[in-house]
């Protein structure tokens, strides 16, 4: 049931390794534990919030006066990266893309808004 699924989501926690996408000039890693109900958008928002403190850029993005956001990618077994839907939860990401016994590797890339 949805309630059980919700409870399971609340009980599950995931270890994440947030790494910079190859095209991302910021070269820093983050090790984060987050609940299964956290969405990709939560991760993007967290990076944006931490970026102002850890990487010294304004809320508009690294070195830019234009608004933007962090896009989150997951590596593909065949190589390359798949852009994650911002509405997906970590539980969704794990079930669809990361059924492995190790922390989930995610890659971030700052995207300027048009």
């Amino acid at each position: 049931s949805a309630e059980t699924d919700s409870a399971q989501g609340r009980d599950q926690e995931f270890d994440l390794e947030l790494k910079p996408h190859p095209d991302e000039p910021i070269r820093d890693l983050k090790y984060i534990k987050a609940p299964g109900v956290a969405s990709v958008e939560h991760i993007s928002t967290y990076l944006a919030l931490r970026g102002t403190l850890d990487w010294g850029f304004s809320g508009d993005g690294p070195g830019s006066s234009k608004p933007g956001h962090f896009a989150i990618y997951i590596p593909l077994p065949s190589g390359g990266y798949s852009l994650l839907n911002s509405s997906w939860s970590l539980k969704d990401v794990h079930e669809r893309h990361w059924r492995q016994n190790k922390p989930i590797e995610l890659f971030f890339l700052w995207k300027r808004s048009q």
């Binding site: 926690e13 995931f14 270890d15 794990h94 059924r99 492995q100 016994n101 989930i104």
Partner: peptide, 8 residues
Amino acid sequence: AKGARGRW
């Protein structure tokens, strides 16, 4: 989710 944590 067994194995979801892994170990850093």
